[in-house]
Simulated scan of single mutants.
Amino acid sequence: MLPEPGPAIEVTDLRKVYGEKAAVDGLTLRVERGCFFGFLGPNGAGKTTTIRMLMGLAPATSGTIRILGHDMPGDAVAIKSKIGLVPDDTLLFDHLTGGEFIEFVGRMYGLGRPLAHQRTSELLELFELHGAGRKLIGEYSKGMKKRVAMAAALIHRPELYLLDEPFEGVDAVGARLMKDILLDQVRQGATIFLTSHVLEVVERLCDRVAIINQGRIAVDGPLSELRAGVAADPDRPGTPETLEDIFVRVVGGPARASESIDWL
């Protein structure tokens, strides 16, 4: 399917204040449909808070959010029906099996029981979770929980995926499978909004990147253009920067260990 016209996400001057501290401070962002978008930042920069506002789980203090042509929170139900979410803390039900949870999510999104059951079986097979049998989610490893969360996000074929650290704790085989599935979803016209601390993964998957620091956007643009800047290494002028180079330069990396502790 071809992406519909207009942005998947359009955020203007978004703020979220807790007490006297702004976790997100004047965020303006546009994510086009069909884009694999990387949303990066150091710990505490405001990434998860932003995703929670996009999902309607945390009300914004001020600013506007428009997702897939709908306003949040006014059209929250319509928006949520078109979104697949993999949260950082994998909000799963520990006392269900993986299959029960995935099928439950499918039913919540309006799938009929036979279709939800069929898709659940196929997703369990795809994510190699069928061997877990009657084992409860509370007994799963972190990587298995991420696989269940990803499968549940896929079951209703959403237009937009919000993925908060989806590869954390997932082994190399599982991560490769998840990456291939996500890339295929983008090829089919879906939009992916990804946060990850694994910059090599972002660099390989994303075509556009924004870096948030202290609640504000520090860098936003196509990854190819960002990497075409001056190299961080003065001995290699003109060499394209890696995403890690860009990230450390933008957020202000620490001094080298050999410079900060003499005896190391």
Rank of each mutant, 00 (worst) to 15 (best):
P42K: 04
T242D: 02
L111K: 07
P7D: 14
I51W: 01
E20H: 08
L162W: 03
L226K: 01
L199P: 07
A151L: 10
V17M: 05
A172M: 14
R33D: 03
P234L: 04
P7M: 06
V186E: 06
L14K: 09
E244G: 06
V77N: 05
I102P: 03
G34H: 07
L126R: 15
A45F: 01
L92Q: 06
K80L: 14
Q118W: 10
I261K: 13
I79K: 11
L264V: 15
Y18E: 09
M53E: 11
E168H: 02
E168V: 04
A172V: 15
G46F: 03
L92G: 08
Q214L: 01
V170E: 09
L2H: 13
T90M: 13
L226W: 02
I9V: 15
G143V: 10
I212W: 00
M178K: 04
F39L: 12
L177E: 06
V250P: 02
T90V: 15
I217D: 00
E159R: 14
R249H: 12
G69C: 11
A153Q: 09
A231K: 00
V219H: 01
V251M: 04
D89G: 00
A190P: 08
M72F: 07
L40M: 04
I83K: 14
G41E: 05
E122R: 14
A45G: 00
G56S: 08
R66P: 03
G34C: 06
I79H: 07
F193P: 09
G69K: 08
L29P: 05
D180N: 12
G112I: 06
A153F: 06
G189I: 11
E168D: 14
L111Q: 11
V173Q: 11
V105N: 01
K47G: 10
W263Y: 14
G38Q: 04
P5W: 09
L29V: 07
R147E: 06
V230W: 00
I67H: 08
L14F: 10
R208E: 15
G56Y: 09
Y140R: 14
D207I: 03
T191F: 07
L163D: 09
H197W: 12
E4T: 15
Q214N: 02
G26D: 10
C35G: 00
L182T: 08
L92Y: 01
Q188C: 06
H70L: 12
S121L: 13
T48Y: 02
L57N: 08
G106K: 03
R33I: 05
Y161W: 07
K179C: 10
A132C: 14
A8C: 13
E4L: 15
G169V: 12
L40F: 05
G99K: 03
L92F: 06
I261A: 13
R52E: 14
A78W: 05
D184E: 13
E241A: 11
K179V: 10
R15M: 11
G189D: 04
V209L: 04
L111R: 06
V198W: 02
S121R: 15
K135A: 15
A22M: 00
T12G: 04
L27N: 09
G221K: 01
K179S: 12
V17E: 04
A210I: 01
T48I: 04
V24D: 02
M108L: 14
V173K: 11
D245N: 12
R134T: 15
I246R: 01
A255C: 02
D220G: 03
S260V: 14
R208S: 08
L27Y: 03
R113S: 11
G138E: 13
R119T: 10
G74Y: 07
R113N: 02
L264T: 13
I217L: 10
E259P: 01
R134K: 15
F93D: 12
